[in-house]
Amino acid sequence: MAIWGLWVINKAGGLVYQRNFGGDGLPRLTANEYLTLAGTLHGIHAITSRLSPTGPSSGAQVISGETFKLTILLTATGTKFVLITSLVEPTADSVLQKVYEAYADTVMKNPFHIPEMPIQSEGFDTRIAALLGS
């Protein structure tokens, strides 16, 4: 698998979880740069949901660059899960579903987690590491 990063963006466009995988796959950015990118992606996603010429749309599901692909899973609550992969990664959709299941099982069932706030759950980190690597 060529998975380089995972972002979780809350319904307001704030980055609540970010993790890089694969060592040198992604450049290191500052916390502010990650927050800016997440907010920008949130805005792009909102715009693309309004552009569909054939009717209602949930927005962009895949955004491709020259050397990478962003796969976006929008949940019913407005939380977005974004996986950054190589262009040829065939399992991005199924991986995002498993990430969402881990989120629902560990984060949303935690009585101490405050919705829309940064995810600080060792259980979630452990499940993500097992699913995507360290």
Rank of each mutant, 00 (worst) to 15 (best):
V82G: 00
V99M: 02
G123P: 04
M108A: 13
I119L: 10
G59F: 01
V95W: 00
T40Q: 11
Q97S: 12
P111E: 15
L35M: 10
P111Q: 15
P118V: 01
T106Y: 11
F112R: 15
T54G: 08
Y103H: 12
G123I: 03
L26P: 10
K80G: 03
I119T: 00
R50P: 04
F81I: 11
N32L: 14
P115E: 06
L74N: 15
F68A: 08
E101V: 15
F124S: 06
L29V: 10
H113G: 06
L37Y: 04
A46F: 04
K69I: 05
Q97A: 14
S121A: 10
I84C: 05
T48F: 10
R28Q: 10
A102S: 00
S94F: 08
I114M: 14
F124K: 07
L96C: 09
L83R: 01
E116N: 13
E116H: 14
T67D: 02
R28I: 05
M108G: 12
L83H: 02
E33G: 10
M108H: 14
K109D: 12
E122F: 07
A92N: 08
A104D: 09
I63R: 11
T91G: 14
A76R: 15
E89N: 02
L96D: 05
T85C: 08
L74P: 12
H45E: 07
F68D: 02
H113C: 07
S49M: 02
H42T: 07
I47K: 09
T85A: 04
A38I: 06
T75F: 00
T67H: 02
V99R: 01
Y103R: 05
T30G: 13
I114S: 10
V82C: 02
D105H: 12
G65S: 02
Y34M: 08
T40C: 11
T36V: 12
D93R: 06
R28H: 12
G39A: 07
E116V: 11
V82M: 00
G25Q: 02
T91R: 14
Q61D: 13
S57T: 09
P53G: 05
M108P: 08
L74I: 13
F81Q: 04
P90Q: 03
P118E: 05
F81C: 08
G123T: 06
F68P: 01
V95L: 04
P53F: 08
D125W: 02
L83G: 05
F81W: 00
L41Y: 01
Y103L: 05
V88C: 15
K69S: 03
E89D: 01
L41I: 03
A76Q: 15
G59S: 03
V82R: 00
E116F: 11
L87E: 01
H113A: 07
V99H: 01
K69F: 06
P27F: 09
